[in-house]
């Protein structure tokens, strides 16, 4: 009796404790390594607050008059790029998602190949895609649309494939049982089940794409990023402030629009 009372209780087994210590050690070691070897110039760090204040002073007041001349059209172009890119990405992502989903396409090698394409699309950032497409199609909105589309394919395709794989088999089997051809089964048995997920993914990705398309112009792929890059290169910081405000407003509006549509649709 007294032995069990005196016994010291511990939450983790010794191996768990050692594992936890090793994990913490690894985290601390990674931080120390990064701090010690990263190249930080002390002079730059020392006058950072001063530079920051200088930046803000130059940005204030924002040159709002510039909006009509140099920002508005670029902003609309950005929205076009985001929307067209999202639509284009869906035309590529839907077939790939169908090929990835194991309950639609029963051949494992095809599943793997389609999934590989999706992963490849995801692992290249949209700015890198934009660099590649600017080199191929020249600077302009076309490169931006393609960059947005190719980056989105992986994201959209993965989520769509997951939604398709999670659908119950019942409706598809019922359609097959009444003698409907495969296409009808997909349209009336599968599509109603994935429809909410489909629109949810579309809205979600469009929201992300509005943010992403704002920076594509930095590498010459059209949109408001071009205006931003110009303003920065000419040190027109008051114009930069206007452009940043415009981007901020558009991003917030896009988010509100998406939440409103989502409430109605889903």
């Amino acid at each position: 009796m007294s032995t069990s009372l005196d016994r010291e209780w511990q939450r983790f087994t010794p191996t768990q404790r050692i594992g936890r210590w090793l994990l913490w050690l690894a985290i601390v070691a990674a931080c120390v390594w990064a701090v010690r070897s990263i190249e930080i110039i002390p002079e730059f760090l020392a006058d950072a607050p001063q530079q920051m204040a200088d930046l803000l002073l130059r940005m204030w007041p924002p040159d709002l008059g510039h909006y009509r001349i140099g920002v508005h059209d670029a902003l609309i172009e950005t929205l076009h790029i985001a929307t067209l890119g999202t639509v284009l990405s869906f035309t590529m992502a839907v077939p790939l998602a169908l090929l990835t989903a194991r309950n639609v396409c029963p051949w494992a090698p095809v599943n793997a190949l389609a999934n590989l394409l999706l992963v490849a699309s995801r692992s290249v950032n949209s700015l890198v895609w934009a660099l590649l497409f600017v080199a191929v199609f020249g600077p302009g909105a076309l490169a931006g649309v393609l960059a947005i589309a190719f980056r989105s394919v992986g994201f959209v395709g993965k989520l769509l494939a997951e939604a398709i794989e999670e659908t119950p088999r019942g409706p598809m089997e019922a359609m097959a049982a009444v003698g409907a051809p495969w296409g009808h089964g997909m349209l009336k048995g599968m599509w109603p089940q994935v429809q909410p997920a489909f629109w949810g993914i579309a809205l979600f990705r469009w929201d992300i794409n509005v943010r992403e398309s704002a920076v594509l112009g930095l590498v010459g792929a059209g949109g408001i990023g071009v205006a931003l890059d110009d303003a920065i290169n000419f040190f027109h910081w008051d114009r930069v402030a206007t452009i940043l405000l415009a981007i901020l407003v558009v991003v917030v509006i896009a988010e509100i629009v998406v939440t409103q549509i989502r409430k109605r649709l889903i």
Binding site: M52, V215, I247, V251
Partner: peptide, 15 residues
Amino acid sequence: SLHYVIVAILFVKAV
């Protein structure tokens, strides 16, 4: 709400 590349531009100017 601001893309990290835009934030990076501002910080490049600042630091």
